[in-house]
């Protein structure tokens, strides 16, 4: 197989051309001494296995369980989230938004893909995609229907476009029938989408 990314074989998909280009780039950057491949491995491992929406689910479950924590989270989410050890890149300034029966929050970055990495990990493809970024600021109810979510018409929808370095975490409403549940059980109800605002927390029946 040619290493020339401009070489076209009939059995080459466009994807494999990109793959070759990235391999070539990594090889050049390593030979030039600009990157340490072991550092690349650790960056990937961190975001693939360590940092993800499980973190955010723990934050939400604690807020549901502990009124003091909830108050701290709503007052200064960056500090409250750091209490659980989640902080840093793309979560330097976090604001928590609590959903209520009257107001449902949704988060987007229309200009790129800003997303609270320490609590949700890297964003899913749909969050970065043109359909979501173009439409959620103008037709959030229509976007919710794409996710199978229908809210009462009286519920206000509040869309937050992350145009600066403030990152937003939605605290979904705690489902009924979860009184007395442990934080661990509650966390299993908290989906990634419910912390972006394109979904609701699971009900006990949905996880039974």
């Amino acid at each position: 197989m040619s290493r020339d990314p401009h070489h076209h074989d009939h059995d080459h998909s466009e994807l494999s051309e990109t793959e070759l280009r990235v391999r070539a780039l990594e090889s050049i950057l390593t030979q030039k001494g600009y990157v340490d491949p072991a550092a690349l491995d650790l960056l990937i491992e961190t975001y693939e296995t360590k940092v993800g929406p499980r973190n955010g689910a723990r934050v939400v479950a604690r807020a549901w369980s502990d009124p003091g924590y909830r108050a701290r989270l709503l007052a200064d989410a960056t500090l409250a989230i750091a209490e659980l050890g989640y902080l840093g890149r793309q979560g330097e300034h976090i604001v928590a938004l609590e959903n209520t029966p009257r107001c449902h929050h949704m988060v987007v970055c229309t200009l790129c893909s800003c997303y609270p990495w320490p609590v949700l990990g890297l964003p899913p493809v749909w969050y970065k995609s043109a359909p979501y970024r173009s439409r959620v600021v103008a037709d959030p109810r229509g976007v919710l229907r794409d996710f199978g979510v229908e809210l009462p018409t009286g519920t206000e929808i509040r869309v937050w476009d992350s145009t600066a370095e403030i990152r937003y975490l939605v605290v979904p409403m705690r489902p009924a029938g979860t009184e007395g549940w442990s934080e661990e059980r509650l966390a299993a109800l908290v989906t990634r989408d419910s912390m972006i605002g394109t979904g609701l927390a699971r009900t006990p029946a949905e996880v039974a």
């Binding site: 993800g52 200009l111 995609s129 359909p131 173009s134 600021v137 103008a138 476009d161 394109t198």
Partner: peptide, 19 residues
Amino acid sequence: DMGGMHGFGPVAPEPDEPV
């Protein structure tokens, strides 16, 4: 700068999406 553009179609969530 996509906010408000039309024509991109529905949002397509991927179940169990890998990172």
